[in-house]
Amino acid sequence: MKYCSNCGEPNPDHARFCAKCGCEIQSGVSGTTPSPASASSQYTLTPDDVMPNTYLWQSIVVTILCCLPLGIPAIVYAAQVERYYTQGNVDAAQRASNNAKNFCIAALASGLAIYVAYIIYIIAIGGIIAGFAGLSSI
């Protein structure tokens, strides 16, 4: 059992984020009882360690490479992470981060699906043409 460094909520050992407040759980506080004094200051002391991932480069890559409108919302959510985080709304920042991630995955998956479907289509067409060529040569 380890305790969230932000709100003191007990979380399972493997948890990387607090189930209650969404903050990243610092590994140093594992197994210790939370002390409210250090808990409130830790969050402001090391802001760079706690801010949720923005998934910026993933969003840009899927927008440019997958050629899909799903990449744009991913970038919009990525942009919201820092704003919510500086406002102190870690919950919303974590949600924006998760949304950015999900849109990236959706864009990547649909991009790959189209890519693979196209390759299968070309191979099938090629097969049909080869089949006709074979027939006509007989």
């Binding site: 801010m51 923005t54 440019i64 970038i75 919009v76 990525a78 942009a79 919201q80 820092e82």
Partner: peptide, 21 residues
């Protein structure tokens, strides 16, 4: 480079990227 990372993860920077695209 924590400052650079923070800047590149910032709302302003990301919206500028979106605007350019």
């Amino acid at each position: 480079f924590p400052k650079l990372y923070r800047k590149l993860s910032g709302t302003k920077f990301i919206f500028s990227v979106l605007l350019i695209i």
